[in-house]
Design a protein around this nucleic acid. Sequence first.
DNA 1: AGGATTTGACCTCA
DNA 2: TGAGGTCAAATCCT
Length: 333
Amino acid sequence: MFQSNIPTAMDALSLILHGCRLAKDLEERLGDLANQPDTLSRSCDDIIHVFASAKERLTNAHPQDPSLLPHQQQQQTDPSLQEWLNYGVITQAMDVIQSSISMQQPMDVSDSGRAGSSSSSQRSHRSSSRKQDEEKRTIRLPAPQMGNTELPPEDNYTWRKYGQKEILGSKYPRAYYRCTHQKMYDCPAKKQVQRLDNDFYMFEVTYIGQHTCHMSSTAPSIAPPPPPPPLIQDPMVITQPMVSQPPTSSSAATLGTWLSMEVSGSSSGGRGGGGEAGASSAAGIRYGRDAVEFPAVADMADAMFNSGSSSSNSMDFIFPHREDKWDAGDKDN
DNA sequence: AGGATTTGACCTCA
DNA sequence: TGAGGTCAAATCCT
């Protein structure tokens, strides 16, 4: 179902990174799990599964030239994809972070220190659904984490889930989200998230409409990043790579510093009533114990890239309270 | 208490 | 007519 080998290879990289995180997490919990062989076994299986998936994709990605590095492959990517990659600031931040992870601490975990019944009300105002001319862009994103595979990938917008539905012919339900600021700023942006039938670790995310919430002077303080798909005019499917271009030296250095503190950082604080700062998506503000690790990295990246306009919030992202950071540490599998 | 998610029913359109 | 999209009360979570 993949459009080309390149995204497949990139998916593999993201899976590898994900596997590394799981392995790291497992090591940190070894002490606690020493007398829980079943849990240990499950965790091992999970990790094995992730790496096996990655290997499978790598094999599929470039059977002809296994020596080609992913970022080299990307150079051969079609221009539209390349443009899209260039456009995604946060994606790049994520790339930097994850590149740094792999470069600085390939598998080194030793210093991880912290590492009712429906109403009959009128619905005539219902916006027309299934409008053909509505702008739709579909991308694919890897699931953020095995333990939180119900969560959609972070995309740096805040979303509110308003529905979920079983889709005919699909194994997994489709979740419907709208911009958190829809009412306040009349933002029409929506998205649909659905797990791929044949790949449990990939989400297909369809964005509908453009965010207008950031255009308001009273809109959230953190200016949103460019929406993922603005350059893609025609409905199409691409896979967002988790590793793309080499980081600039400065950003790499900065993020590298962060990584030394937060390599395995967890969510910086649940949903927080005010989670409207624009930096945490539905994925990042998932309720309770299912705090997500992966989005927290995006949060940090976002904080950095927007640090000029948002002062204190950024620091909160970068230096979250310790208890918040590690609450998620005991999540199972 | 306030805001987000869940979920069954309702509505629209192909 | 039925699949897909949305609504909104109930429920959950912090």
